[in-house]
Structure formats: C-alpha cells, structure tokens
Write a protein that binds this DNA or RNA. Sequence first.
DNA 1: GATGAATGAGTTTTCATTCAT
DNA 2: GATGAATGAAAACTCATTCAT
Lengths: 233, 233, 233, 233
Amino acid sequence: MTADAGLSGSQEEGPAAIRAVRAKWRKRQIVAAASELIEQHGFHETSVNDVAAKAGVSVGTIYQYLPSKEDILLLVIIDILDQYRERVPEAMVGIEDPVERLLAGFDAYCRIINERHSSALVAYRESKSLAKDALGKVMELEIETTDLLASCVRAAADAGALVADIQPSLIASDFVMLAHMWALKHWHLAETLSIDEYVESQARLMPRGIVRGDSLERYERLLDGPQHEAQAK
Amino acid sequence: MTADAGLSGSQEEGPAAIRAVRAKWRKRQIVAAASELIEQHGFHETSVNDVAAKAGVSVGTIYQYLPSKEDILLLVIIDILDQYRERVPEAMVGIEDPVERLLAGFDAYCRIINERHSSALVAYRESKSLAKDALGKVMELEIETTDLLASCVRAAADAGALVADIQPSLIASDFVMLAHMWALKHWHLAETLSIDEYVESQARLMPRGIVRGDSLERYERLLDGPQHEAQAK
Amino acid sequence: MTADAGLSGSQEEGPAAIRAVRAKWRKRQIVAAASELIEQHGFHETSVNDVAAKAGVSVGTIYQYLPSKEDILLLVIIDILDQYRERVPEAMVGIEDPVERLLAGFDAYCRIINERHSSALVAYRESKSLAKDALGKVMELEIETTDLLASCVRAAADAGALVADIQPSLIASDFVMLAHMWALKHWHLAETLSIDEYVESQARLMPRGIVRGDSLERYERLLDGPQHEAQAK
Amino acid sequence: MTADAGLSGSQEEGPAAIRAVRAKWRKRQIVAAASELIEQHGFHETSVNDVAAKAGVSVGTIYQYLPSKEDILLLVIIDILDQYRERVPEAMVGIEDPVERLLAGFDAYCRIINERHSSALVAYRESKSLAKDALGKVMELEIETTDLLASCVRAAADAGALVADIQPSLIASDFVMLAHMWALKHWHLAETLSIDEYVESQARLMPRGIVRGDSLERYERLLDGPQHEAQAK
DNA sequence: GATGAATGAGTTTTCATTCAT
DNA sequence: GATGAATGAAAACTCATTCAT
C-alpha cells in the first residue's frame, strides 16, 4: 500500500503503470503485424525490419519491447493459444451434459481457428524455431487446451456414456486435431465445405464413434441436426 | 524448379542413360542427407554446405543436380509422399470389402508415418518454404494420397454400408489427418500409446462413426480386435 | 567539443552562476559513473545508457550537459590528468634539491596512479577515440604533466649534477613512463612488488643512471634507503 | 609415411597442404590490411567491411579464414609479439657478456618497435577487446619476451656485475617498457630524437643505473659511444 | 530542467550460389 | 563431372542521439 493509496484506482499508478500499459500496447502492435507477415510468408522469410515497417514503428522500438526475434514468434503463438484458453471454456460454461459440453467446446475451438486459421498454422509450423524452454511453454499450453476438452470426455466416460475401449485422452486429442485440421487442410477443405458444415459433420461423426449405443439416442437431436446435403464430391 | 524433380528415371540408353542413372544416384544421396538434417534441425537451420558434408559431396555437385536449395526440400517432401503413394495401395490390394480396405490403407499410412515421423513433419512444417508451383505439386500428391482412401469410402457409401449424411472426401481427409496426427502429436501421444494401440483405437472409433448400425456387426471382428485396456490417463 | 570541457567553474552570480554550479555537479556525477564503467569495460563497451543508469540520471540529462559520448571520455581523461597537475606540484613544494624534488614528484605521480590505475589506463587506451582537437588538448596536458618533472631535471642539469649526454626532457619522460608503467604492467608487476617497493626500486635506479659520479654521494641516503631484500625472482 | 613418400618434398602434399598455404597467405593479407586500419583508426572504429575492402577481398572470405572480428585483432597483436620473439633472440645470439647481450636485445626490441610502432600501439590499446583466453595468450607472449631480457640481467647479476639491490625481473620490465615507450610517446619523442639517439640514450642511462661501479669501466666504450649533443630542449 | 521512448544508421555475421581449376 | 574458395546481399541486433512531454 503506497501513501497515496486513496488516490489510486483499481490498479497501480505512476510511471510504472504507464510503462506497463504502453508495453502492452506496443507488444500488441508488434504481434499483430508479425502475425500477418509470418502467417503469409513464414517466420524465416519475415525479417524484423518487415515487421517494424508493417507495425509502423522502427526496429529499435521492437527491440525495446522484445529481446529477440524469437520472442516475437513466441508471442504470436501464445496469442492464439490464449484465445483457446479463454473462449473455449466460455462456450462450455453452464452446459450440464458432458457430451454436449464437449461438442460446444469443439465448436468454439473450430470457430476460433476459422477466424484465425493462419495464426493457428503458425503455431504448428514455426514452433520448431523456438528455443527449448519456449517450446516447452508452448507445449504446456497446448496440453492445457486439450485438457479443456479432455475433462468433458472423462466426465462422460465416468457417467458410463462412452465406449470403454478408447482412451479418453486420445479422444480429446482427436477432437483438438480435427479442430486444427480446419487450419491445416483449409486450402483443401474450404473448397467444398463451409465452417458450419465442417463442424456439423465432425460433430456428428465423433459422437457416433465414441458414445455407447444405448446412450446414443439421447443425442439424436444433435446427430440429425440441420442436415446439409451430403455432396458426393 | 524442374518439372521432373522426382527421383525416378527413365530407361533410355547411351550417354544420356548414364547421365540419368548418375543423376538418380546423386539425388538419392543428397535427399538422404538432407532428410536427416532437415528433420532434425529444420529447413532454414540446415545449410547447403551441411547437406553436402553429410552427403559426402561438394556443394558444387549438389548444384549440378538441383538448381536451388528449395529443390532439395521439394525432393525430401516428395520422397515421403511417394512412400504413401507406393505402400498404401500395396496394403489395400486384394481386399474386397471397402471398409476393410479403408482400414488396411489407414493402417499402412500410420505405419509409414511411424517409421518416418520426422519426415512427415517436414512435409507439414516446411512446405511453406516452397515456391508456388512446387507447393502446387505437393498439394496434388497429397490429394492423390487422400483419394486412395476416399475411393474406399465412396465404394462403401455406394454399397449402402455408411450412414447417409457423410461426405466421403471429408471422411478420407479425417483418416489422413489422424494418420498424420501420429507425427504431429507424437511428442504427446507416444507417452501413453504404442503405434499399435494408436492405430487400433482410431480404427475402432472411425468405423463406428460412419458405418450404418445394421452393417456394423459385419465389422465386429475388427472393432473388438486384440483389445488393450483403455487406461484412463 | 566545448573549449572549457573541464569540471572547473567560475564564480559569477545570478542565474548564470546557478547554472554553472549545477553543470559542475552534473558533470562530476556523470564522470564518476563513466570512469568506473569505462575503466572496467572499456569505452566502446560502455553505452551512454549504462552511464546514465549508473549515475542515476536519464540519458537526456547527460546530453544536456555534454554534447556527445566522446565528451564524457574527454572529461574522464582530463579528470586524472588534473590529478597529476594538482598533486604532483603539491608534493614537490618546498624541496630545495632538484634531484630530491624530482624523486618526490615521481613518488607522488606513482601514488596517484596506484590509487587510480584503471583511470590511468583509460587515458592510454581510449585517447584514440577522441577527435583531433580533443586529443590535442589531452596531449597538451600530458606534456604539462611531464614538464612538472622536466623542470627539476633541468634545474639539476643546470647545477651540473647530471651526466651531460642525456636530454633532460627524455629523462623526465622516462620518469613519467616508469610511473605509468605501474598502471600499464600492473597485472604483472603487482604479483611480486608492492607500490612502495616499486617506487623505491625505480627511485634508486634512475638517479644512479643520471647523476654524475661526483654528485652521487650526496644522494647516498636516498639510494640506500629502507632497503627491501632483492628477491631474485 | 604415405605410399608416395618418394615424391613428396620436405613438407606434406596434396589438397590439405594447398589449403594450409592458402590459409596462411589469406590470413597475412587480412592481418596486413587490418593492422593498418586498426593502427590508424582503432579496433572499434574499423569495421570488418573496411578490412575486407582494404585487403581486396570480400567479407565472406575473411570469415572463411577467421571466425570472428576479434580473431583478426588477436592475429594482429600476435604478429608483432612474434616479431619480438624472433628477432630479439637473433640479435643476442653469440654475444658473451650479459650486459652487452642485454643491450643488444634492447636495441633490437626498439628497432622492431620503430619499424612498426603503430602495431605496437595496437597491442597496448586494444588488448582489452580480447576475450579472457585470448588475452591470456597475449600476456603469456609478453612475459616470454620480457624473459628474453630478464635472463641476461640474471646472468649479469650472477656474475656479480650488478649492484646488489635490484630485482632482475623488474629491470627487464623497465627495458621492455622503455622500448615500448618509443611507440607510446612517439608523437612526443620523435620531435626531438631519432631512434638512434633514443636507443643510445637509454642504453647509456640504464647500465649506469644497474652496473656496479667497479664493472662500469668495462662498458665505457658502450656508454661513451658516438655521442650526440644533448640538446636542452 | 529532466525524462526516457523512439529512431535508424551501422555493425557483425551467415549462407545460397557461382565459377575457375 | 567434381570441387570448394570466393562472393556479397541480407539478416538480427545495438546504441548514440533527439525531442515531445
């Protein structure tokens, strides 16, 4: 508690606070520019000068806020992973049935990726360029994201709603993979499918694959949802 | 980027034939060295000199047979894609039932990826570094591989064995994605699953998701195969 | 490069006087911080930001009082040269005999260097980084310092106490050089000699080398002073 | 012994030998250019591109033979130290009397420095820019050179020719320092002295300071050599 | 007067590519 | 055909200096 605690708002104050806010703003500026460029051309093909130009700042400014080019990449990757961590749980909140919750989470996951599919790609493609410990952090966050869905799977399994012969953690990974797939194979899938169709299709396939026959009818509504014509491509 | 960038030669005679054979041999030498290095360190972290040293030739020799560094990458990527094109059909040959054929293809796909999961990763990670037309060629080959499985799905659908609302090409892509997943998430999956367990699990999940209830019993043998305990991780 | 780059001010009054005193204080602050850093890491390895941080001021403040980084260096160098100019004459005052006066000056010279041997080194090492005219000023001050001793030598020569075949100015330079040597070769000499032993040894050697045989006995007391064992290293 | 030992000259042969010779030649080229530039402008003011331009090669070539800019400096410094190690002993060979030998060594030392006084300066000024172990190597070489003279002093002392209270290693250091002085104070000394006069003066001063009175006459020839007028500057 | 964020020229270093041998 | 020394454009990063607050 500082002497002028009575004057302070909810957070801190003074130069340190100003600096913190500015740093946040600058980093956002830099990450936004970097995201776009890296998504488009790849990490190695994007120079720090390019990022600076795109962000409308000087190289010097970038290095004032981020110690190395690698840290730019790390921020870009963490940025999208943070989206998952924020918005996926948000979409699942208040849904009782674990399978429905799982599908709601999957839906949210896919939507985020649809909005920022090139960012999602960056996370896949360029993680290799990170140093050991940064890579470790990214992996941790990825596992954390998978666990958002894994907990639903486990809840459903505990409720006896799932087939017994597939690991819950693998099922969760499958869902995550299929969400990422929208980014990874976007160039191919988007030719014939909208994101809505994609999510629906996967959201019909997966429950059939994992829910026990005797529980399936409970989800019939989901599985027969607003059917699109299955175009035989 | 040459049109015939592959490792395959034709069977003429005379000096031209000699040249062709030599070229094939050299390219193999170079690709073998490059694969290993790129898988381990990434494309941009691997220099042409490194490749030359590893291959036991001079840089000059590399440039005699490949016009640019990018072409080395293209060859490495095509190398693994060729594996798919060769060995997946091989595994499916002679199997009548389309679903069984599909699963045999999936199994083969996963085995190849298990053997060379870092090569498979390279195809994902580094494709971005290819020029437009080379990338196009890679995509073509990828589609070709997917189509190997898609034809089975279509056959099964035509035979009325599948649920009505699926899109065969998407299902094929799902299978391909789940095969690739063994490479992409190997760092995580391999902690709790062997390749056998992985393939079996996915080969149980997917048919349940797509085969019509009344046809399912036909595949019971497959679906209940040598069951591993589903460890709740 | 200002003409009056030194730390000394004049004694006016009013706002100008205030400014002058402040300038003096600020410069002292800056030079103190810079000295320490430059001595330790060298001029080029020391950034203006480092100096600012060490001095507890902002870079802006430094540039308010000194027009360039080079001027910081100039001040640091002048600082030690000013020490010589102040304290060497102080040590010689009141000593009649020119040879004794010379040795007293040499002794003082060595003591200053012993106290601040890294500053003394800076003057040697980093002078090159000064612009022409600043370098000129430093050389001037160095000559001035040498002249402090040269006048004694000349007095002794005029009194006929010295051998005739060596230039007095060279003798003075030799003394200065041997004083500086304690800084330049400190890493080596300090292993086997204390500053006291060093000064005594040189103060025995030099007179024997320059005083005429028939005058030598006058200085026997000096030459046989509190002898330390001559360790054959 | 290789199979073709009969064909080989005195050294090795083949590509390795060619490379070795080329490397030596290139390094000489680079060091020559770097010496000149560093002597003139200082190490930090000299860019690798400057060196390349001066040497008439590309930057790439420099880095093919030297792993970093620092190594260029190290080579420049070692180059002059090697001169001392070669030519000083050469000058002393065959001289019986230890004092005469010492003076011959000192003379050679001074001549080398006179020829390359700016190189000698570089060794002083820029050593600080070397990394720990490189600096260690330089110090070692410096000590080695000093020891060349120290052994003469010790021989003279053992023969009873010197005053009792001297430390041979310090005397040797004094000689070395006075040789270096010709480089360090060249800007000042060269105004009034030629190198010949300088060496003679010091070679008169020092023996008087260390040789016992009863042995001095033996060196009268040296001490009264081709006397120059001692100009009172 | 004091601050320190912003600037961008300049530095070291790498590496794909060429070409004389 | 094979070699590998030479090239130089381009990249990441630093830091003296400025100027709006």
